[in-house]
C-alpha cells in the first residue's frame, strides 16, 4: 500500500528529501522504520524517535492504512 512519509531535521538531510510516497508492505511504524532506516542509513534507533500518523502521535505498533501520512520524529530542539 502507498504511504506518505515526511522527514524533518537530520532525517531529511540524511534521506535527501522532505517527503516521499512509498509502496510498502509495512504493517506498523516499527516495520516501516526498519525499512527506511535501511534505505537511507538512519542512525537513530527507534527508541530515540517518536512516531506520528496523520498528524497525531501513535505507538510503534499502530496499524497503518493505505494513504497514511507517517512521520518519524527525531529528538526535538525548539526553544
Amino acid at each position: 500500500m502507498n504511504l506518505k512519509l515526511l522527514y524533518f531535521a537530520s532525517l531529511a538531510d540524511r534521506a535527501g528529501r522532505s517527503e516521499e510516497t512509498r509502496d510498502s508492505a509495512a504493517r506498523t511504524p516499527r516495520e516501516l522504520y526498519v525499512e527506511v532506516a535501511a534505505v537511507y542509513g538512519f542512525a537513530f534507533t527507534a527508541d530515540r524517535l517518536r512516531v506520528a500518523v496523520n498528524g497525531a502521535f501513535v505507538g510503534w505498533d499502530h496499524a497503518l492504512g493505505a494513504g497514511d501520512e507517517v512521520v518519524f520524529l527525531p529528538p526535538v530542539s525548539g526553544g
Binding site: F8, A9, S10, D13, F44, R48, A52, L73, P74, P75, V76, S77, G78, G79
Partner: peptide
C-alpha cells in the same frame, strides 16, 4: 513540541540539534 534547531557555526559547518 516538534521543532528542530539547525545551528550554523562560524567555521561554516552546521548541524541539527537532537
Amino acid at each position: 513540541v516538534p521543532i528542530w534547531k539547525n545551528e550554523h557555526y562560524a567555521d561554516g559547518e552546521s548541524g541539527w540539534l537532537h
